[in-house]
Design a protein around this nucleic acid. Structure first.
Length: 564
RNA sequence: GCCCCUGUAGUUCAAUGGAUAGAACUGCGGACUUCUAAGCCGUCGAUGUAGGUUCGAUUCCUGCCAGGGGCACCA
């Protein structure tokens, strides 16, 4: 409808002798002011040195001549807004359409035949999976699904730091531990990392030991260290895999720093003199020569060790060579922002055709309401513990319901994950998220569980309807159009907007509005009522709502439970 | 010092240059007791600051203030 209407407005303008570049069509904040609204009259009034209201009236009569299907009336309001009111048939048709499209409802073809690679999560073996990884995962998974809904083939990638000082610190802790390591968990390895990290900062002797281990990890010259390394890498990666399963992520690629280092190093060395330069014994990139806002970074140290920058070069080139994506998206915290600009500039000089295809999405950092997180103080909130706490709260809430233990476990998992994911995805990506367990993991109001709960209420109506053998029909339609209908059809537009801005929170905001509209409808209307001729249409409406909520939650990476 | 991000109600967040700046939580006040009350209805309450551009600015530009991040061998 939106595109069609824009075309009609453009041709109306053309008839009036105005060549319109872009036409802005929006949904008025208040549904009373129409279903769509445009400001073109105000925008072009000056150009024609005419009164916006008069121009609006002219445009209105041009549009009325067209007799657009599904349009009930056109009005001029305010300073010169043209408001469009859709016909009841339009809403009924969109409900029908939703039930026809089912799981495909909301998809578009913006990225038809395109391939998009999304890299996210990036936890490091030997270190805990912390809240930041949870954030990146929630955002990256949602972006992946939004891109998928926009018609692209999505390739999910994870990039993990399996070499470097953090590994040496953990191994130092493991070696230093009096207990045998063989049956220990990823959690325990995380604790050893914290001890090693502490040791590194507090005693030059230990620092020296850890540096020594780091070298051995690189060149694999020490049998004992190799054994611990292989064991620890597996244990932590397996633990991450469990978390991905809970979160609902399945990666197509796992890239490791150990593999990217030699690839990147080769590329960097081949481009010395062209892109990179030698300076004080190190290989550096003077990005400020290309963009004054960027800065110089070291890519290979004076000791010849490739840094993170170099590995990133290797990773970027590897991604393009393996999959040749039309768009390559990376999701990380904002702290990587400036760094990434420099690296991407360097890559662009080597491969100009990659430049416009690389996108870096940054999100804020998650911080604790009660002071800073620090691995040394031991007040790190790991992703696992957070997930577990959230699930425990849900389990407690459903404990007295008549459900089997398996059902309760599943609900705890699905709703617990939802509470967390929603609290991350509800806000735009720019700002930090202050994590306060009591407040941030909310189960009422603006929250994931609220959306799920609303879907569950709809689902139980549908289940009952099915049992009683009543079905959806469009024969008798109530006179009044509900807000629910006015919100439902907008879903597809919201998905498009989420993609063009790469902002999942638009979905979250929309779903909350949708749930609220449904709950109002639910509270005021008895839906199952055999003596009510409108009952069949209302059932269709409930079904359309349930489908839309389910598809929307999917885009947030959240499952829709049947009961809760 | 330079660069990037962010400042909206008591709190956590929305608002594609537009109409009376929306929600949620909290506070206060209600309804029904029916298909799940994790729900519904009402109410109190906000654009950091000073300019500029515009018919119109929370949104764009500039200065200032505040918070976070980054700036040569960590990742």
């Amino acid at each position: 409808m939106k595109e069609k209407l824009i075309q009609h407005i453009k041709s109306a303008l053309k008839n009036l002798g105005i060549e319109a570049g872009s036409v802005i069509l929006e949904h008025p904040a208040d549904l009373k002011m129409g279903d769509y609204s445009t400001n073109v009259a105000m925008a072009y009034a000056k150009q024609l040195s005419t009164n916006p209201k008069e121009l609006a009236e002219k445009i209105k009569s041009e549009i009325e001549k067209e007799n657009i299907k599904g349009m009930q009336k056109v009005e001029v309001a305010g300073a010169g807004f043209i408001n469009f009111y859709l016909h009841h048939d339009f809403f009924v048709d969109s409900v029908k359409d939703i039930l026809k499209q089912k799981d495909n409802w909301g998809k578009n073809e913006i990225l038809k035949d395109k391939k998009v690679m999304v890299e996210y999560t990036q936890p490091n073996p030997f270190k805990p999976f912390h809240i930041g990884h949870l954030m990146s995962n929630a955002i990256g998974e949602s972006i992946s699904r939004i891109v998928e809904f926009s018609g692209a083939k999505t390739v999910r990638a994870n990039y993990q730091g399996d070499v470097g000082p953090h590994v040496a610190k953990a191994i130092w802790g493991i070696l230093d531990s009096v207990e045998p390591y063989e049956n220990k968990s990823a959690l325990w390895i995380g604790e050893q990392y914290a001890r090693g990290s502490d040791a590194y900062d507090n005693d030059p002797k230990w620092k020296e030991e850890i540096n020594e281990i780091n070298k051995k990890v690189y060149d694999r010259s020490d049998e004992k260290i190799n054994k611990i390394y292989d064991w620890g890498r597996k244990v932590t990666l397996d633990a991450f895999e469990e978390i991905y399963k809970t979160l609902g992520t399945k990666f197509d690629y796992y890239f490791f720093e150990s593999e990217m280092a030699p690839i990147g190093e080769k590329i960097v060395r081949e481009n010395i003199g062209k892109v990179f330069e030698e300076s004080e014994g190190a290989i550096v990139f003077h990005a400020e020569n290309y963009d004054p806002k960027l800065h110089t970074r070291v890519f290979i140290t004076s000791l010849g060790i490739p840094l993170y920058e170099t590995k990133e070069v290797g990773l970027t080139v590897t991604k393009f060579e393996k999959e040749n994506p039309d768009i390559s998206i990376i999701t990380t915290a904002i702290e990587q922002g400036e760094y990434m600009k420099v690296v991407q500039k360097a890559v662009s000089l080597i491969h100009p055709d990659y430049e416009s295809r690389m996108k870096h999405i940054t999100h804020g950092m998650m911080r604790l309401a009660s002071g800073k997180m620090s691995s040394r103080k031991g007040n790190v909130v790991t992703g696992e513990s957070l997930l577990k706490d959230s699930m425990d709260v849900v389990y407690e809430k459903v404990s007295d319901r008549e459900l089997s233990i398996e059902e309760k476990d599943e609900i705890a998992k699905v709703v617990g994950v939802s509470a967390l994911k929603y609290s991350i995805l509800r806000s735009s990506l720019g700002s930090d998220i202050v994590y306060d367990f009591e407040k941030s993991i909310s189960f009422e109001g603006d929250s994931g569980p609220y959306l799920q709960y609303t879907a569950v209420r709809a689902n139980s109506i549908l289940k009952k309807v099915e049992a009683e053998g009543i079905c959806a029909a469009y024969k008798d339609i109530p006179n009044e159009v509900t807000n629910l209908e006015k919100v439902l059809y907008q879903f597809g537009e919201v998905v498009e907007r989420s993609y063009t801005q790469l902002e999942p929170h638009h979905i979250a905001t929309y779903l909350t509005e949708l749930a609220s509209a449904f709950n109002t409808f639910y509270g005021n209307t008895q839906i199952i009522n055999k003596s009510d001729p409108y009952a069949n249409y209302r059932i269709a409406l409930v079904e359309a709502f349930h489908q839309t909520m389910k598809n929307g939650l999917y885009l947030l990476g959240i499952k829709t439970p049947g009961k809760m």
